[in-house]
């Protein structure tokens, strides 16, 4: 299969706005809901996720095209991708710890959790299915990460106000109202879909 002929800029914008990894594809919702209570943590996690997705999609692209495909071991690709993700996360953790202890403290427990954030594996699997070329894979990776970051920042800012609201019915508090909010955000993002359509 050949790479789809998509320009890099449209692809980048599309992965942030029209096919936002979270609002259109629902990936990474679990940590999204639990972390977005707190604005600062959301910022930290957003940065970390963007870095991990970007790096992983670049590395996994190379692994896919120079290791998995020539050897014909496509059936092992899930395991290999997971190992790459875990490795990248571990490595980032060590690098950040060595060079910027303050950032390390800020990211804290979020780094290891990224391994099981479905957005990371999701982006890689999308990249494999759509057979992007290297540049497209990198742009798509960073774009999706940035999209996730944008979404969590938006939600966190809404929630700092929303969680103080006492008019919300008891049964809908917490997760319920958060889901409704995300629903409205998803609807708003559908509005972008007229601009660029990239699959």
């Amino acid at each position: 299969m050949n790479a789809p002929s998509v320009g890099l800029l449209p692809l980048f914008l599309a992965s942030i706005l029209t096919s936002n990894i979270l609002l259109a594809n629902f990936l990474g919702t679990c940590s999204f809901i639990s972390i977005s209570k707190d604005f600062k943590s959301s910022m930290g996690l957003g940065i970390a996720v963007t870095m991990v997705i970007g790096l992983c999609s670049a590395i996994c692209w190379a692994v896919l095209n120079y290791l998995i495909k020539p050897l014909g071991i496509e059936y092992l690709s899930f395991i290999i991708f997971i190992i790459v993700i875990a490795g990248v996360v571990q490595m980032l953790e060590m690098i950040i710890d060595r060079f910027s202890p303050s950032l390390y403290m800020a990211l804290g427990i979020f780094l290891p959790l990224i391994t099981v954030n479905c957005a990371v594996l999701g982006v890689i699997l999308f990249m494999q299915i759509r057979s992007y070329n290297f540049l497209q894979a990198v742009v798509f990776g960073f774009g999706s990460g940035a999209g996730w970051w944008l979404a969590i920042m938006l939600l966190a800012s809404i929630r700092t106000k929303l969680d103080k609201n006492t008019a919300i019915p008891a049964g809908l508090k917490g997760t319920g109202i958060t889901l409704v909010t995300i629903g409205f955000m998803a609807m708003a993002f559908i509005g972008f879909s007229g601009m660029i359509a990239v699959q």
Binding site: P169, G171, L172, T175, L179, G183
Partner: peptide, 22 residues
């Protein structure tokens, strides 16, 4: 069949379940 309805439906179901449990 689009994304937002999924969020709304889960939220509604969650609301119902929570209220019932309470």
């Amino acid at each position: 069949v689009m994304a937002p309805s999924a969020f709304f439906l889960v939220a509604l179901a969650l609301w119902a379940v929570n209220t019932y449990k309470a």
